[in-house]
Amino acid sequence: MFSGFMIHAWTVATIVAVVAGLVGFFVVLRGSAFVAHAIPNGSFAGAAAASLVGINTLIGFGVFAFFGAFSISALGHRGRHDVATALTLVLMLGLGALFVTLSVEYTPEVYSLLFGEILGVSISQLIPTAGLAVVCVIAIALLYRPLMLSSLLPDVAEARGIATARIDLAFLAVVALATTMTVPVVGTLLIFSLMIGAPAAARSFTDKPLQALGLSVAIALAIVWAAIALSYQTNYPVGFFVGTVSAASYTVGRLWAAWTRHAGIRSPTGPRVGPKYT
């Protein structure tokens, strides 16, 4: 389980989890789950296109991910991305369907693109993934404060001269970047579970933003490690375990929050976690 090609899988999964935990924290904070779903999902078309014209799939992923981010940002109306996201996503997916149909040899790979093939990661994939991860982490660290304020209080952020539209675009670009690096290894459909499940679970356990951010990374790591181990033991796809373990961790978080709230009401000296005031 820890030998040979498995080492690559563990390494890449760890990198992916760190990035997904960090970026996902803001995805959940901003309520942009849809965007986090759309950009990875749509960018799969890029890989199909890349294989059709015979270039590196990573380039295809990158081009389509950034195209998606800019399109969502341009079509969105005052921060309302709902419809714009949906249409951008299906346009990219439609293109993906076309490319898949046209390229003869590609069809069997659709599955691995959608659901990932983390156990088959090679050393040549590992290096660009690590490089992009570093860029991602630096970008999040740079954006941290303005992103935080414009996510929480957009009016105040604007009043303080923060270009909220530009921050929004920058954030979408970070999601696109995270997508480009993670999708080829964990699949388009499941990076999303990691980006939502881990941070959503984390916020049940702490009130402090930085702690929640750290916890989000920790939970994402736990999810992928557990998924790889389970997949190795059972031979079932990693994606299945990532999806279900994410949902399970969220459920545990919700139960924990409900329990502490319950306990908090019983002992008035305890920390105030639940809504007492109306």
């Binding site: 789950a33 849809f34 986090a36 779903h37 659901f115 459909l189 499941l190 999303f192 579970s193 939502i196 499940g197 959503a200 994606g239 299945f240 375990f241 990532v242 999806g243 279900t244 994410s246 949902a247 969220y250």
Partner: peptide, 10 residues
């Protein structure tokens, strides 16, 4: 999002 993630896993 949570439901979607779990559904896709299945």
């Amino acid at each position: 999002g949570i439901v979607l993630g779990a559904g896709l896993g299945l």
